[in-house]
Design a protein around this nucleic acid. Structure first.
Lengths: 278, 278
DNA sequence: AAATAAAGTTCCAAATAATGGAATTTTTCG
DNA sequence: CGAAAAATTCCATTATTTGGAACTTTATTT
């Protein structure tokens, strides 16, 4: 179906919990096209027309015209074998979106400072639905594969930034989100139900920071602090991440202070630059 | 403020020469929505409803619903003041598009090698219409601002990769593209007409590499080599870029060899991995 | 604080674009 | 070459979008 030979072990969390397949979208023609765009971008190899036909379950004629429109607009591309892949227009649109993002611009110098202080990778993320979208990253001197993280949508229930973000949701929004979650096991430490997750969130609320104890990726730990606007319409977080062999839980605990201070500084500046209510 | 008196000719063709110039955009509802998305992402500040109303020249009711759909799908976002900005969903889509791009994956190790050899910034770009879209970048040890370059669309007539790409277009495609170009002065060295550009392209064809002599940005030089598929359905390029004070034209000339060799290696591997025809 | 203006939102008959089943063409493969 | 699969085109029907106007909310002025 979805292409036979999948070489390279594309490590992918997939899961897209922020949008539920069962919930129909009420955005008319655009919604239907975005479903297709998601289908193609979430696949890990280009899809042939027939593959998409099977996945989308639409009439041939309809699907053909829809894909044609997406290609025409550069959102999809057809390769030499007639298979559909994500289009480069997405890159152009996204680079503009990223370059001007106010939150990222405000946070950038503080992320750099936190990186200097800890020497480990620093992440900035935003809560969107039930996913964390990483907006920025400051890391060491390895040949960086930045896009591998920036723009990536990861589940909120197994990342430091995600759990920190959940801890500042209003009670009703939190329970609503918890109800809609479906859990995916990434490691043996991944939360697999709302009860244990909620219990940890209560702890996070009281201490003001969250840990990822190898819950998303084996061997990777992090400590994170939430960032939120006064009216909670905007929620994100900042984290310091690294390999477990180098980052003991004690060390992470010590870093909780600078991480929280970084979050605080970013929030202070947001109030100045974006106004106090938001 | 943004919108001054610039009432943007609707079918401005922005940059896509790959689209047949004679046929107007015929992607129905999607096409209309993409015009709006472009409007908002190309602005350099969030736009209010009324700003967009003036720019798009559509009836209030229509525009309102269209923007609503774009917001609903996460392609646009509304900030606290009710202004429209590019949405984060674009980042998620783009990161997937980038992560799986075969050309980039093939080229990556060769870019790294070229960077090691020269010590300067290496770029990988693809010709899209009359723009170069940068797909990857390898640079020094500064805190990297990758998105600032990756995904960026730059004009083909004033960048090294762009001119290198033009040099491998078929004669008819080249003249078609040259006809559709409108030139924008970035520096005193920027080509401002098709004649001088075409003259330089002839030189590039004969030597196999192109220079950017501070034509896009003052103080920045580069040397680039084209990369193309046998059937010319795919055209891009690789370059080494740096500050003019450090990169004399003599040094760039010396680097033309490794840059061309890098391009050659990438093309060889493309033939193996993607098949010889394409 | 009331009046006024501007911005934003909702409504619904008419216009337009999308739909989908089937026919047709092209490509692939034995 | 011939058969099967895949991709593409066609067009009457159906659903979505359209756009003018009425309406509500927010900002500005007196």
């Amino acid at each position: 179906m979805i292409s036979g030979g999948d070489r390279m072990a594309q490590v992918d969390d997939n899961d897209d919990a922020s949008r539920d397949a069962s919930t129909p979208r009420d955005t008319g023609t655009l919604g239907k096209l975005m479903v297709l765009l998601d289908l193609v971008t979430h696949s890990d190899a280009p899809l042939r027309f027939t593959d998409i036909l099977a996945l989308a379950g639409q009439p041939r004629g309809t699907l053909h015209r829809q894909l044609g429109h997406l290609v025409e607009e550069g959102l999809l591309e057809i390769d030499a074998e007639g298979r559909y892949a994500p289009g480069l227009r997405l890159l152009d649109l996204a680079s503009r979106s990223w370059a001007r993002n106010e939150f990222r611009l405000i946070a950038a110098p503080h992320l750099a400072a936190l990186h200097r202080e800890t020497g480990e990778t620093v992440h900035l993320g935003v809560l969107r639905g039930s996913s964390i979208i990483y907006l920025d990253k400051v890391e060491g001197h390895q040949p960086v594969r930045m896009y591998s993280q920036i723009g990536n949508a990861s589940p909120c229930y197994c990342t430091g930034v995600g759990k920190a973000a959940l801890s500042v949701l209003t009670a009703d929004k939190l329970s609503e989100l918890l109800r809609s979650l479906h859990f995916n096991r990434f490691t043996s430490a991944t939360h697999m139900n709302a009860e244990t997750l909620l219990a940890e969130i209560r702890d996070i609320v009281s201490v003001g920071h969250a840990y990822d104890r190898e819950e998303h990726e084996a061997g990777i730990r992090c400590v994170a602090a939430p960032i939120w606007s006064d009216d909670r319409s905007f929620i994100g977080g900042v984290s310091v991440t690294g390999p477990a062999y180098r980052l003991s839980m004690e060390l992470l605990q010590a870093w909780a202070v600078p991480v929280q201070m970084t979050a605080r500084k970013i929030m202070d500046e947001m109030r100045i630059r974006l106004g106090p209510r938001r």
